[in-house]
Simulated scan of single mutants.
Amino acid sequence: MKSKVTLQSPMNIGNVQLKNRLILAPMQQNKGTLQAMPTDYHVKHYRDRAKHVGLVIIESTGVSANGRLYPNDIGIFTDEHTGPLRRIVEAVHEEHTPIFIQLTHGGRKAWPEVVDRLVAPSAIAYDDFYGVPEEMTSKDIREAISEFRFAARRSVQAGFDGIELHLAHGHLLHQFLSPLSNLRSDEYGGSLENRLRIIREVVIAIREEVGCAYPLQIRVSASDFAEGGLTPVDVAHALTYLEEFIDAVHVSAGGTLPVAPLADGAGYQVPYASVIKQYVKVPVIAVGRIHSGQLANFILADELADFIAVGRPMQEDPHFAQKLLQYEE
């Protein structure tokens, strides 16, 4: 007998209760200032979409000036970023909705024009546009861990209800995890445990800043879409080393290489989420063209995932969440 869970069912991520299972997925707005500051645009954008969803996750927010993804993204790498970000939090809270921040370092996919150094686990280019990065030294790795730590501290100061750590889409932490982008021979490369080492150290550093009760989830890419790259089972095994520190997993795919998925139809990433769900006990968030109430409720009822994240339709229509939630069997 199928579960009676629907999009309307409440559920917790950590100690934060979500009024329903629908999440606003993080999507780049490309409206930040040259200094990576959010603006009035961001305050209005997130407030307009907050009312009906169970959780807002804001766009990728850079933890380092050398990790910015775009010239007009937003960041949290100085204390000055905290105030503008707090305005977004307060606007979303006015709609009685919790809000998480997504913390990111671009690594070899940081925008070349706005970073001083392009760094990565290994000196392997993503493509010709980004160019060949410098292989990170032990000092560079320690600095990156500290940048995530300080970003977590500022996230709490800004009033965010939780953190999503970006371990997906070919950014720095994903670069360490994937054997396609990590060819190191030291303690940060080689075996799965070694490739996970910086991620565990980042997660532990964040926990030291925010405590055990503060919600922390991870966004993963469950497949590299390439031979020799990460598979859903690989990522699931990696998560078993991290699960004691995290409250949820947000399952996406791709980004290590400039290749497209083999399929991209409705719910195309749900099978990845369903694999991850077999290995972890924390809630799993599915994403990827889940644009109908019928499909969303099927995924939840069949226990393929615990939450549904939606990006592009909500980006284009601030009322899309209300329409999705109104679906009835």
Results as ranks from 00 to 15, higher is better:
K281F: 02
F150Q: 12
V202W: 02
T78W: 08
M314N: 14
T240R: 02
I246T: 02
A321D: 11
D161N: 15
G254W: 00
A236M: 04
S64T: 06
Q29L: 15
P313A: 10
R108D: 06
G162A: 10
V259K: 06
E90W: 01
H81S: 07
D79I: 11
E95V: 02
E80V: 05
A296Q: 06
L324C: 02
T240K: 07
A226R: 08
G255R: 12
S155V: 00
Q326L: 12
L304K: 15
R207K: 14
V202A: 07
I285L: 03
K109D: 01
D234K: 09
L180I: 14
F150W: 12
G75A: 09
D40T: 13
Q217C: 14
F150R: 06
E94N: 14
P258T: 08
L22R: 00
H105C: 06
P261D: 03
I290R: 01
D247V: 04
S191H: 04
Y126E: 03
G62M: 11
E134Y: 11
R108P: 09
L300T: 05
A50E: 12
D234C: 13
G67W: 04
T137S: 15
L69Q: 04
T231V: 03
R195E: 05
I76D: 04
K277M: 05
T137Q: 09
L257K: 09
Q217K: 07
V233R: 01
Y70N: 13
D48A: 15
H96E: 13
Y327E: 12
S60R: 08
S146G: 10
Q326P: 00
M314W: 00
Q17R: 14
K51V: 01
Y130W: 14
N72H: 14
N182K: 09
S292Q: 05
P98V: 09
K109V: 12
H250K: 00
N12M: 12
H45E: 02
I218V: 15
R117S: 12
Y70F: 13
S252M: 08
E135T: 15
H81I: 11
A238T: 01
V63Q: 02
A248T: 06
F298P: 00
Q8F: 00
G32E: 05
V89R: 03
H166L: 09
Q315C: 09
